Amino acid sequence: MDVGKIFAVGSRERMFQLKARRDAGLDSPRWQPPHYFTCKKCERRATRQTWASTLYVCPNCGHHQPIGGYYRLSMVLDHGSFRELDGELQSKNVLDFPGYDEKLEAQRAKTGLADAAVTATGKVGGVPVVAAVLDSRFFMGSMGTAVGEKITRAVEFAARKDLPLIIFSASGGARMQEGIFSLMQMAKTSAAIQRFQAKGGLYISYLTHPTTGGVTASFASLGDITLAEPGALIGFAGPRVIEQTIGQKLPQGFQRAEYLLDHGFVDQVVPRSEMKATLTRILKLHTQGRKHGA
């Protein structure tokens, strides 16, 4: 048995869990006063520890708060299976956009992320997968060149290794500081998904709050199976923009996950507490089907 390999896996898992705890706001020394978090919907206030115990789902109103990429992966991936892909890949100021370099550095310092996407391999319920998460804390999960490249590389890795692909989307759309280069990522990621699916790969798209703009108009809408968290805002343009454009009032709950489920855009709305169990069930059905030649 390779002791060095065991040590490497243990170190990697410890670093992953530290990042997940940081995302959840639980990495402060115990002697410090408790940090509080307020629900963005009902304004209920409780300690971070209380919110972490509910997976950042409000115990008062059920609102699913946005969560960090490493924290989400820690909920989904089997213990000890996490291995990050392209962890150091970062956006560059390709257009010399004024102030963009400083804003990138500020975002990296604030979030501890290289950019708005985290990609990794691991296991879900014992099934090997490739998983990607867009983190809305970094420029609202906007898709620039680094995010597009990381997603594309993750898709291509899944294709090479013949692994299922799960992408958790949360985005405000294309990153305006990168102009046409950010818009190009829509075609780039969509083409990668098409090649992956043409080879028979399973792609599960998991939409979280909010999933909008160019991400919705590209890879987020191309899943073989599309899941969504309760109450997630999903669409291209926001409801206020649409109302101003068409001069009409939109239906109640328009562009929310439940509305899209009723209209056939989403296959299932899955509460966060059921996230791993649901993914495990889908992956095992897929794996068993392939074994039996289905």
Rank of each mutant, 00 (worst) to 15 (best):
D2H: 09
S11W: 13
F16H: 07
Q17A: 14
L18Y: 13
R22Y: 09
A24N: 03
G25W: 01
R30Q: 09
P33V: 12
P34Y: 03
C39T: 09
R48C: 08
Q49P: 03
T50G: 11
W51V: 00
N60G: 12
C61I: 06
H64D: 13
Q65T: 11
G68C: 02
R72F: 04
S74H: 01
F82S: 00
L85Y: 00
L85C: 11
S91N: 15
F97V: 07
A109Y: 10
A109E: 14
G112A: 06
L113I: 07
A114H: 01
D115A: 12
V118K: 02
V124D: 01
G125P: 09
V127S: 04
D135I: 07
R137H: 05
R137M: 03
F138K: 00
M140W: 13
G141H: 10
T145S: 10
K150M: 13
T152W: 04
A154G: 07
E156G: 07
F157Q: 14
A158E: 00
D162M: 04
P164E: 08
L165D: 01
L165M: 11
L165Y: 06
S169Y: 01
A170M: 06
S171Q: 11
F181M: 05
S182P: 08
M184C: 06
M186N: 12
A187H: 13
T189Q: 09
I193F: 04
Q194P: 05
F196T: 00
I204S: 03
P210V: 13
F219N: 13
P239M: 07
P239E: 03
Q248W: 09
K249N: 13
G264W: 00
V269M: 04
I282Y: 01
L283C: 03
T287I: 01
A294S: 13
